[in-house]
Design a protein around this nucleic acid. Structure first.
Length: 591
RNA sequence: GCACCCGUAGCUCAGCCGGAUAGAGCACCAGAUUCCUAAUCUGGGGGCCAUGGGUUCGAAUCCCGUCGGGUGCACCA
């Protein structure tokens, strides 16, 4: 599996799972070299992973089943040949054919203990991969409009994007975490007008209710006050044209400060905030349009009436259209409005082209409500970055499904315009960053989820994040206790560890391959589930000591065993900590 | 009408680029604390993997249809 997508950059000396993928690969090479197997068999579908049922062995490969047909033989015959090769590895205790043609491997205890020692020497880098080959990946996430504070609707994409960015970095990429600031559309003009009302209010004018269509939230009160102290009464009765731009600039800046603070509550810090207004001022959309027109991908045409709804006032006009129908979209999409300004799409394609200049691959995290625009932007980016026959830049859009917000079981329709929303800050303050982050990462992003504010506050004590954190805290406590009693973790006598301890090592040793597979799939939630499994394994082992005192970490009369056990505990703790770090969750030392 | 996502235990969800007997938590039942903090552990019951076809050695997983839920279908952002 690791070699599925071209040459693996994995340093095969780093961990056992990667090493055995390589062992199988070279075993097959040997069979090919001796003429036993035909060359060029497709190996992409070969896997090497722990079997679900651990009684089947430590590792299992489907190589014989996958290759039998193309090799013109049957799985069991091929398995026998491959087994002969695999048994040459001194770490292999047994290699058996099972079921329809699986090869089950058992490895020596020493091999697993070597892996345990490796965790110790790698420390915070255990699980780090070179798979990404240093390729630069731009991850764009959040990108909420700068018109108000972050609310819970933004939360999931923010957490998933942030965890993914860290995961990709750990998997060997250089990552740029980017936030696209939509500071050029009509919504920021509305923001400026809303700020103007608050500005008048700050000057003592009775403004009454906030007019319909403006943002009513009182987070704009301080913005109005700041404008009042900066400009005095200069713009109170001035025409909009006089104040719109300075008010907009200042209001957007204030919103971004607020948004950064909100994101910081979740531990999220972007590397780059890119301004749509600056992009437009720099003429990027014009350049993109010019190129697209030259390649007949933009033309002046009539826009079709929207499907599925009847607009009474529909009027066909001629606009510059991008040929997205060539790429599976159901109609061509305008890049400019009839007033000559850019559509969101028109600016966005130029923005993506700009990102592609400094990155080897692009990943966008979007809310599912934007799913309808995926085809057009992917098409435009493929066209722009694939210019002159070059292969297009890899560009993925990960859709994060909606979070249905409930309050007392009732759906909350959130809208900044109505001022009715649950802010991210209030939730984080109530239940904590770790609970929020872990909750958002314990399900796959493409399934909808409910988020009941009251329920989450109520249930936060039972949140699975504490289960994982408790495992880490228990480990820290036991190491501290050992230290108090004069014991220190040591890798010197790991051979004293028993079968249950080795079971735990096998589990922890999966971390590197989980990291790689999660990174390839762009699915950070896999890390969360792995940590839950690892914590369960640890807690289970820990409780053996309830009935069997000789299984405790600290066995006072046996300092060599205690040192080995504490070393084991420390390394399990290390893996938990490394995993939690990817999720942006604290590895608490006590709860 | 069209596009995308989802449908797995009573509930919330893993598993899905095909693999062996489909898993976990909650809830329920029965146990384990003079014993490393029980925020833990052990055991039990509970499934037509929505449904009908197809592909193949093998399908919860891939393909097609149907049903059900969600989202979107502006020159908005």
């Amino acid at each position: 599996m690791l070699w599925a997508n071209g040459p693996s950059m994995t340093d095969t000396s780093t961990n056992l799972h990667a090493a055995f993928a390589k062992v199988i690969d070279t075993g097959l090479d040997t069979l090919v070299a001796s003429g036993t197997l035909p060359a060029r068999l497709p190996r992409a579908a070969i896997t090497c992973e722990p079997p679900r049922d651990t009684s089947h062995g430590d590792l299992s490969t489907n190589a014989a089943m996958v290759l039998a047909k193309p090799a013109g033989t049957n799985p069991r015959a091929l398995a026998a040949l491959l087994i002969a090769e695999l048994q040459k590895d001194t770490r292999v205790v047994s290699a058996e054919i099972a079921g329809p043609g699986f090869i089950n491997l058992r490895l020596t205890d020493a091999a697993w203990l070597g892996e345990l020692a490796l965790i110790g020497s790698a420390g915070a880098d255990y699980g780090r991969s070179t798979m990404g080959g240093g390729k630069i990946v731009n991850v764009e996430y959040v990108s909420a409009n700068p018109t108000g504070p972050m609310h819970m609707g933004h939360c999931r994409g923010a957490v998933v994007g942030d965890a993914l960015a860290q995961l990709l970095e750990f998997a060997g990429h250089k990552v740029i975490k980017e936030y696209y600031v939509n500071d050029a559309g009509a919504q920021v003009d509305v923001l400026a007008r809303s700020a103007h009302v608050r500005y008048r209010e700050a000057l003592g004018i009775d403004v009454g209710a906030i007019p319909e269509g403006l943002y009513p939230g009182d987070y704009l009160v301080p913005v109005g006050q700041a404008l009042a102290s900066e400009f005095g009464d200069k713009f109170v009765d001035a025409p909009e044209a006089d104040w719109l731009i300075p008010f907009r600039t200042r209001a957007v800046a204030a919103m971004l400060v607020m948004i950064r603070n909100d994101l910081a509550l979740l531990g999220i810090h972007h590397d780059l905030f890119s301004s749509e207004a600056e992009l437009q001022a720099a003429g990027k959309p014009e350049a993109a349009e010019k190129w697209l027109r030259a390649h007949d991908l933009v033309y002046d045409g009539q826009l079709e009436a929207p499907k599925g709804k009847t607009l009474d006032d529909w009027e066909s006009v001629e606009l510059p259209l991008f040929r997205s129908t060539k790429f599976g979209d159901d109609q061509d999409r305008p890049i400019k409005k009839s007033d000559g300004s850019w559509t969101y799409f028109g600016a966005d394609l130029a923005y993506h082209f700009q990102k592609a200049e400094t990155a080897d691959a692009l990943v966008d995290i979007w809310g599912a409500d934007h799913a309808g625009t995926v085809k057009r932007i992917k098409a435009a980016v493929a066209a722009l970055t694939g210019a002159e026959g070059a292969p297009p830049k890899p560009f993925e859009i990960k859709l994060v499904q909606m979070v249905q917000l409930l309050r007392d079981g009732e759906p909350v329709k959130m809208s900044k315009r109505s001022g009715n929303f649950v802010t991210l800050a209030e939730v984080v303050e109530e239940v904590g960053k770790d609970v929020v982050r872990f909750s958002m990462l314990t399900r796959k992003p493409d399934a909808q989820m409910d988020f009941d504010f009251a329920k989450v506050v109520e249930a936060s004590k039972d949140n699975p994040v504490f289960y994982v954190q408790y495992a880490h805290a228990r480990i820290c406590r036991n190491i501290a206790k050992g230290r108090d009693e004069g014991f220190a973790p040591s890798a010197e006598n790991l051979a004293l560890l028993g079968a249950e301890e080795l079971e735990l090592v096998r589990l922890a040793a999966q971390f590197p391959r989980i990291v790689e597979s999660a990174a390839v799939a762009r699915e950070p939630h896999r890390i969360a589930f792995f940590l839950n499994d690892l914590a369960a394994g640890f807690h289970s082992f820990y409780n053996l000591g309830n009935d069997r005192a000789e299984k405790r970490f600290i066995v006072a009369h046996d300092s060599a065993l205690t040192a080995a056990r504490l070393f084991l505990a420390a390394q399990i703790g290390q893996v938990v900590k490394n995993g939690l770090a990817l999720l942006g969750v604290e590895a608490a030392e006590e709860l």
